[in-house]
Nucleic acid binder design. Structure first.
Lengths: 211, 211
DNA sequence: ATATTTCTAGACTCAAGAGTCTACTTTTGA
DNA sequence: TCAAAAGTAGACTCTTGAGTCTAGAAATAT
């Protein structure tokens, strides 16, 4: 039923805007254009509502991220523009309002809903990381990148892409201009390509040494 | 008065453990070994209590971070071990239980307390970034690093250091083993040194190009 | 059409928790 | 030593909001 979707969407929006504890079920129902009893019919309680709203939102976010990663294909030409395009798209996903809201809710409610971490960590974050690692591995195998450990490379690339965003976007309270996103993507890809240039056998970053 | 400190410490601990909305002033008072009225005498209300608890915690965290940055001095020998030491200390700060709790509370309550962002962003994060940029600038001037834009270099170094931590520490629900912290520090410093090797004039990462 | 399910509006119960007040005790300081 | 200030226990008020219930109005199926 469409009501269910409306309730989930409204719940996510309201919880994101004012916080879980500060939002009444009445308000969610009103925002969804639905009676309070209907919410209870569908979800049984406020906590389940939050759980399902977060799960649904995480799935949407994951889908967008995976779509971005999918564009990382070897066109035969220079890798840089392709990587910048994918990087920019991943940054856009990360900076999406819903995405910030999702992270806020997750951080906030991690204490009472530890099982949500499982869902988001394994079903969302790790899946995207794996997909990206797969793509990088293919490029490495084709001799386009000097990568020996794709997982380490993904960790580096992700860090360079998303690391600057928290401060620049002021933890989601400031909307990043498109130009700034492009700069961050370009800078990250530039660093990444320096680190993993094709045929760079000067010592592809293993965990340095164990000493 | 020592009571004030006890209340602040208890408030931070309780809020961090169960969340702001889920924690009663009664509980904070009990945890601090103090009567509820005393809490109201000192802070006037629950919201002020949260505000001051977060501010105090942020100050402590900042002090620790600055102490770590202070160790970044030119000993004349190889830079790598010094950077790894500082990097590891910064990672330890980031992974501190209080530090995770602080980020959780901030994320969670950003919506109602937007002024807190100012405090934490400007007084804490930016101060540490600036201090680190200063140190890197000195090393660059001494010819030990090939840095032209210290702010960009700090952004890179911070990203490489802390980027991997969210996933690895499962958003603060998993305690990172010391060995893993050392690995992350070593990997980050290794990448950083590749990007900013002394005398590397092959094109110190400007924002790539604007096109 | 008509029977069954779902939805609606809104009144209602009940528990939790913020903040106040009072009467009493301890600490502090001159 | 003794008065002012600060702290304590705990009862008390009052608001808010979760969850329930009822009677009636759509929607859906047979």
């Amino acid at each position: 039923m469409a009501k269910r979707q409306a309730i989930l969407a409204a719940a996510f929006a309201e919880f994101a805007a004012r916080g879980y504890a500060q939002t009444g079920v009445d308000e969610v129902a009103a925002a969804a254009g639905v009676a309070k009893a209907t919410v209870y019919n569908h979800f049984g309680g406020k906590e389940t509502l939050l759980r399902e709203a977060i799960t649904a939102s995480a799935e949407q976010a994951t889908a967008k991220n995976l779509a971005a990663v999918e564009r990382l294909v070897d066109t035969g030409g220079d890798l840089r523009p392709t990587l910048e395009d994918v990087g920019l798209r991943l940054i856009q996903c990360y900076c999406d309002d819903d995405s910030w809201a999702l992270r806020r809710l997750l951080y906030a409610e991690l204490a009472h809903l530890p099982d949500l971490l499982e869902i988001v960590q394994v079903q969302a974050a790790e899946r995207v990381q794996r997909a990206l690692a797969d793509r990088l591995a293919r490029l490495a195998l084709a001799g386009r990148l000097g990568i020996t450990d794709p997982d380490a490379a993904v960790e580096r690339l992700s860090s360079l892409l998303t690391g600057p965003l928290e401060a620049r976007a002021r933890w989601g309270t400031r909307r990043l201009p498109a130009k700034e996103m492009r700069e961050v993507a370009a800078a990250a890809v530039d660093a990444f390509l320096r680190l993993y240039a094709a045929g760079d056998e000067s010592g592809p970053p293993q965990p340095a040494r164990s000493r």
